[in-house]
Design a protein around this nucleic acid. Structure first.
Lengths: 168, 168
DNA sequence: GGCGAATACTTAGGTAGCGAAGTATCATCG
DNA sequence: CGATGATACTTCGCTACCTAAGTATTCGCC
């Protein structure tokens, strides 16, 4: 197979940084993981822009929708899952609420709490973006056979399992 | 093998969004790619913070060092490779220069141009961070045998090759 | 050779996000 | 019950970054 960006990266590395210990295979795997993620991030950005959402609006709707209780969560839960600060979450929700994609409802049993709920319009636009995004993923996946996809999943899972052990 | 975050994610998906077409294997691969990248991003942040760099300072030094002409580049080249605007680059370089990790040198043949050069201190701190970062990667990679690592590289490369075709 | 377009970088004004402090509510325990 | 601490969210001041406009230099072409 022709070389990819990673091959060139690793070759450059070997040329210039001989003294820095490194394992080509390890470097290759993680650089490629990063390149694929980067490509999909950009594809997502295009998809999301096309339906008229900003990146962070989509991300917020997305974690709201893929939860165990889809379409409903507290600001704190969303912030944690998005890796964003509480303050940042307040800002995002202000925007989403103004745009009409989300509602803030005061919780009845605990008046400190707020429940964030997706609106019909919010769900609709999220689905539109999801659809576009899924197409980009399917397109990439066509580079592999069913069998290869299964193998890839098996090997990647060994890595994610370890990473989750490390995170505790 | 026990389930990972992705397994739970996919299971949830099937429960709640039956009507949205999706391929489990495809979703699994790309979600895992994203989870691994996310884990390594955080590991990098920890490594980088430990030696006393911010995330974006390290990133900038890093692309400066891994180029064909290591330790030397124009602001525009760096901005492109980092996916940052020209204005953003100016800001980053101001900080890096102030901290003494980088120098701005006027180009002799074209007085519009500036050459960014890493200093000794900049190279030293980058290497420190690289070392820590490499350890996190090696640790993850130990989840796989040599053979599995090779297979993983081969399959991932099929995907990156396709993504690079798409990008033109 | 000189004038308009292109290039390389910086400055200016605005936005998303962060950490820390603030406000309101609830839980614990004497 | 009442005081102290914990929790849930918001407000405030600051930073990094973006787009667009500005400045300086070089290129292309008659």
């Amino acid at each position: 197979m022709a070389e990819d960006w990673t091959d060139r990266h690793v070759a450059r590395w070997k040329d210039h940084w001989l003294d820095l210990a490194f394992d080509e295979a390890v470097e290759g795997v993680f650089v490629r993981v990063n390149r694929i993620d980067r490509y999909l991030r950009r594809a997502k950005q295009r998809a999301v822009a096309e339906v008229g959402l900003t990146d962070f609006e989509y991300d917020t709707l997305h974690v709201l929708m893929i939860r165990d209780t889809p379409g409903s969560a507290s600001p704190t839960e969303l912030a944690t899952e998005l890796g964003v600060s509480g303050a940042g979450m307040t800002g995002r929700l202000d925007g989403l609420e103004k745009a009409g994609w989300v509602r803030r409802i005061p919780a009845v049993d605990d008046r400190r709490r707020v429940i964030v709920e997706v609106t019909k319009a919010g769900m609709a636009i999220w689905r539109q973006a999801m659809d576009l995004r899924g197409r980009a993923e399917d397109d990439l996946a066509e580079a592999l056979t069913e069998r290869e996809l299964a193998t890839l999943n098996r090997l990647l899972k060994k890595v994610t399992v370890r990473s989750e052990e490390r995170e505790g």
